[in-house]
């Protein structure tokens, strides 16, 4: 491991002002420490924010506010979350392992890096790790890789399950920087690789995630997180889908739909949502929406199966959300 400085921040402001010169925030450390051990990331300084008062989960003025340091397991088991946003709980429990969920925080989950093998091995090319070195996955082993929003510089996927639920729930990310607070719609937080795959998200170098807000909604009765992976637990998604329905009898008033394991960011499916609104909650409706959702998907050598699996998982998630299974 390459040497680094370690500093414990006692206020959010102090953390923000310390965020200069290749410094990184550490919270649960479940991903960053691995990356440092492998020399993939070598921050000169770590700023430990674990003593900041950002662990609470509260309901205020029509929205839920989840502190950036709330643990994944804490959020997944929280009574308020289970009552108002069970989709988030389901997505969290589909991710990682119990041990990791006990360490990982909400902010850290959003900031985790891709699990692309080329990113992790410093002997292999990766534009995300080393801009200009090339994308190893593009012509290499790309079974786990993206089918939406790829570029010729990067086809990695964002690995989070939690974020798939949060993007579907129209969450807002509250961040703090030198100029004060900024609110970022969840769908704008993570970005597509384009020509700068080294940038995972739109958080500025001197900004700190403070909380995530989820506006009240009417999806708590009919929602589901369906994740298909290579083993039953502790594996990243081949494809996952967060589905939420507001049902009026058998008709869909409003729908929310997002996919994981398919893009450089949690992939919100707004066109498919539109196609679901006002339709009866039937398998046929779901199948039509799934076809719309998959428009524009592009496969590589080893991940063509995702073109087939993707719509099936959308249909299964919606069937489960609607109580048809």
């Amino acid at each position: 491991m390459i040497q680094f400085q370690y500093e414990r921040a006692s206020t959010a402001k102090a953390a923000v002002s310390a965020l200069a010169n290749n410094a990184k925030i550490i919270a649960g450390g479940t991903n960053l420490v691995d990356l440092m051990k492998r020399n993939v990331m070598a921050p000169a300084k770590l700023i430990d924010i674990n003593s900041l008062p950002l662990r609470s989960i509260e309901q205020q003025n029509g929205k839920m506010i989840i502190g950036a340091l709330a643990l994944n397991s804490q959020v997944a088991d929280d009574k308020l979350v289970l009552e108002k946003h069970p989709l988030l709980s389901k997505a969290l429990n589909a991710g990682a392992s119990a041990q990791i969920r006990n360490m990982a925080t909400v902010g850290g989950n959003m900031m985790q890096r891709t699990r692309c093998s080329y990113f992790y091995d410093t002997a292999l090319p990766c534009n995300k790790r080393e801009p200009g070195s090339g994308c190893g996955a593009l012509e290499g082993v790309n079974r786990m890789h993206a089918i939406f929003g790829t570029s010729d510089k990067c086809i990695a996927v964002h690995p989070s399950d939690m974020c798939v639920a949060l993007v579907a729930l129209d969450a807002i990310v509250v961040v703090s920087g030198p100029k004060g607070e900024r609110r970022i719609p969840f769908d704008d937080f993570h970005r597509l690789p384009g020509s700068q795959p080294e940038k995972d998200n739109t958080l500025q170098k001197d900004e700190l995630i403070i909380s995530v807000e989820i506006p009240d909604n009417t999806f708590s009765k009919n929602c589901h997180y369906f994740k298909v992976r290579d083993r039953t637990s502790y594996a990243f998604a081949l494809v996952s889908v967060a589905a939420a329905l507001d049902l009026d009898g058998k008709n869909i008033k409003e729908a929310r739909l997002a996919m994981g394991g398919v893009a450089h960011k949690p992939w919100r499916l707004k066109e498919a949502e539109k196609a679901l609104a006002g339709k009866p909650a039937t398998e046929e409706t779901f199948r039509q929406a799934a076809e719309i959702a998959m428009q524009g998907a592009k496969a590589f050598k080893h991940n063509a199966f995702k073109l087939k699996l993707g719509p099936n998982v959308i249909v299964e998630a919606l069937k489960n959300a609607a109580g048809l299974v």
């Binding site: 392992s97 699990r115 093998s117 080329y118 992790y120 091995d121 002997a123 292999l124 190893g136 012509e139 290499g140 082993v141 290579d230 083993r231 039953t232 637990s233 502790y234 594996a235 990243f236």
Partner: peptide, 23 residues
């Protein structure tokens, strides 16, 4: 293995899947 490099790409417990309890 990525044969262009002769290097394994699944080489940790995250990528190389041994069964977990749930399996």
């Amino acid at each position: 293995m990525d044969h262009r490099f002769g290097r394994y790409v699944t080489k940790d417990f995250g990528d190389y899947h041994v069964p977990v309890h749930a399996d």
